[in-house]
Computed example of a mutant assay.
Amino acid sequence: MTTTSPTASRSAAPAAPPRSSGLSRTRSTKAWLFLAPFVLFYAAFMIGPTVWMMIASFFNTSTVHAGLGSFAGLANYVEMFTRDDFWSSLWHTLQFTLYTVPPLVVLSFVMAVLTNRVARGQWFFRLAFFLPFILPSATIGLIWVFVFTPTNGLWSLPAQLLGLDPGTGMLSDPKTAMIGIAIATIWWTIGFNFVLYLAGLQEIPRELYEAAAVDGATAWQQIARITVPLLARTTALVILLQIIASLKIFDQVYLMTAGGPGISTQVTLGLITETAFTDNRIGAASAASVLLFVIIIVIAILQQLITSAGAKRGEGS
């Protein structure tokens, strides 16, 4: 006759099921409670207005009359496609993007590389480069309108050195007004890209540079063979964010030139604002907004596809 010890019987008994499901549900509930204020705010002030804008683009909505107004179908879109000022404003927006994106990417990268190599007092350069970014757009507009003031502005001396007429303000000339806005924007926003690049640089192990230096690599070779490839994803992010931000340009133009001289600096968001609140045509302005939204989405997708293709070629090589 065999007997089973209490220890053996306890070990043979099946283990109790884990209670992780109830704990996970509790954590999920708490997470949604914390997210609820932001989700409600985002739905009320982002998703809701976006959906309403898309609906209003098919109606003759006006600020004068309540409601959506009469159904217009695709008339608002057809009107925008046939308006010369819409295409000119779109060209000015793309022009501003071409003026600002390359300098904001290249200069911020160079500034970050130089700052990362500073051994002492690095905090000063971080503060100096990032400080303009925290200033409001109204302050930036006032500063640079003063800088570009003819004759008495700070721009008069560089203008003389470049052989330009200091009596003609940069913002007063249709040929140079957009360049002036681009210069102000670069000075204002370069700090954000600088911080992104500096954060990426500090994630690169120093041992890679030390090993390259032992092998005889120069500083330029280290940047080309180590820094640039390892910061490829950061560069893609900076380019994407900068393209989107440049395509949404409005504040600087409105404050510095109000779209002038003439309509030489009128951008798409400026045209949308004028159509909505000056002409009181919310439906037409909504159609223009949808078109700009689609353009931004298409450009962002193309940029991502190009970046992904380049990354795959780099991995294949």
Rank of each mutant, 00 (worst) to 15 (best):
V147H: 08
L291G: 02
A199G: 12
A12V: 03
T234Q: 06
F109N: 05
T97A: 11
N76I: 03
K312L: 06
A184V: 08
Q122A: 11
E203H: 06
R281L: 03
T3Y: 13
W52V: 13
T139H: 01
M178G: 03
G260S: 13
L107S: 10
G260Y: 09
P229K: 11
P6I: 05
F148P: 01
T268M: 09
E315G: 10
T149Q: 15
Q122S: 11
Q242H: 07
G73H: 07
F146T: 13
M111I: 06
R117S: 15
S286P: 13
Q95S: 12
H65E: 08
A224D: 11
V267F: 01
A287W: 02
F125N: 09
S11D: 08
G191R: 03
T100M: 05
S289I: 06
I306N: 02
L104G: 12
F293A: 14
T61S: 14
K30P: 00
S286M: 05
L40F: 14
A287K: 01
L240P: 02
T189K: 13
A16C: 02
T185W: 10
L231V: 05
I226L: 04
F96N: 00
T63Y: 07
I223Y: 05
L302Y: 01
S28I: 08
Q95W: 14
L94K: 00
I179H: 13
Y197F: 15
A13W: 11
A112L: 02
S11F: 11
R126W: 01
P14M: 09
R25G: 10
V118E: 05
V228H: 06
T185F: 12
G141R: 04
P132T: 05
T257A: 04
T218C: 04
A177W: 06
S28W: 13
V101G: 07
T234P: 07
A12M: 13
R120N: 07
L127S: 14
F41W: 13
T26M: 11
G283R: 07
V214G: 12
Y209P: 10
A258C: 01
L241G: 09
T82P: 10
S137H: 12
A224F: 04
F86S: 04
S172Y: 05
L164E: 14
E315Y: 07
L237A: 08
V113D: 08
L98N: 03
S108G: 09
S11I: 14
M53E: 09
G67R: 13
G270A: 07
V294D: 05
A31W: 14
L247S: 00
G22K: 04
S89K: 02
S89F: 02
P166N: 06
P37S: 02
G73I: 03
F34E: 05
S264F: 10
G141K: 03
R233T: 12
N116T: 06
A236V: 10
A311E: 09
T257R: 01
A285R: 04
P49W: 09
G73P: 10
F96Y: 14
A31H: 11
T278A: 10
L255R: 12
T278N: 15
R206P: 02
Y254Q: 12
